[in-house]
Design a protein around this nucleic acid. Structure first.
Lengths: 141, 141
DNA sequence: CCTATTTAATTGATATATCAATTTTTGATA
DNA sequence: TATCAAAAATTGATATATCAATTAAATAGG
């Protein structure tokens, strides 16, 4: 059984191809952001006010990694760590105006990548694909 | 459209879940190897004598990254860079006995992860999944 | 042949990944 | 209340990711 035929290997490969494609488009457009930063920013946009621990769970990333990426998004003035009134241990991560503007400007670009990725697939196939992926995730948890 | 419903996001998530699962099992068994190192080692096992450039293409990784991972696999005495007779610019990457023994010892473990990942999926579903993934890869190339 | 271009591998810089250790704060309990 | 354990975020160490720049070697064109 060659590694090429292992479905996990193809999943990993697809993930890589997709990130390479998006990153090159981001660079070509001079967006000056990484794919991981974009994803985190989009999660913050969709769930304003989460703590870093919650962001880590949502994105399946390590809290340490979230800390560092938030530092970079802060430097761009895209997000801010708001202090939580009754808990000085955690922060509430919020989108700032510049972050909102950035997302609104480039969402069509990202949407077009998503559309391109599933070109030639029927809605049913996409749905099946999603379900199979979620089943695999559950198998490994 | 929430990012959770984007198929590329689920693909990335599945890849992460799978790597986390395998890495934890590797650590638990005291294998002292990373998932990326294992994958590269397995590719070398299946394709003895490739150059680093070819390994990079095969694994969809950057040549610079291959260089560094090969350094680590060399230190473990799992592989060697053999000089190519008529080309002093490239190396032929070959498995060494310790690498072969390591693979034979732990292949059952990795195979069991693969089996676990597709538990409850029919052969047909696995095949469909593979085909859909390859289609997406082609869409983005 | 000699020079210019191309190529394979490496190295440097920066971002991301994990785990372990640390800091600060909260919560629990004796 | 004083102390001790748990929890959130950060920092350090190391591996991996990319791109750009470098090095050394091969090749092409004059």
């Amino acid at each position: 059984m060659s590694i090429e035929n292992v479905v996990l290997f193809q999943i990993d490969k697809t993930s890589k191809v997709s990130k390479l494609y998006s990153q090159r488009e981001f660079d070509r457009l001079g967006m000056e952001i990484t794919v991981e930063q974009w994803i985190l920013l989009k999660i913050i946009d969709e769930n304003d006010g989460l703590t870093q621990k919650e962001l880590a769970q949502q994105s399946l990333r390590d809290p340490a990694s979230i800390t560092r990426t938030l530092d970079l998004l802060s430097r761009k003035d895209f997000i801010e760590r708001k202090s939580v009134p009754d808990n000085r241990r955690q922060y509430s991560i919020c989108l700032k105006p510049a972050g909102k503007i950035f997302i609104e400007k480039y969402l069509p670009v990202v949407d077009s990548h998503r559309a391109k990725s599933i070109e030639g697939l029927s809605n049913k196939e996409v749905q099946q694909l999603n379900q199979l992926l979620i089943k695999i995730q559950q198998n490994l948890q």
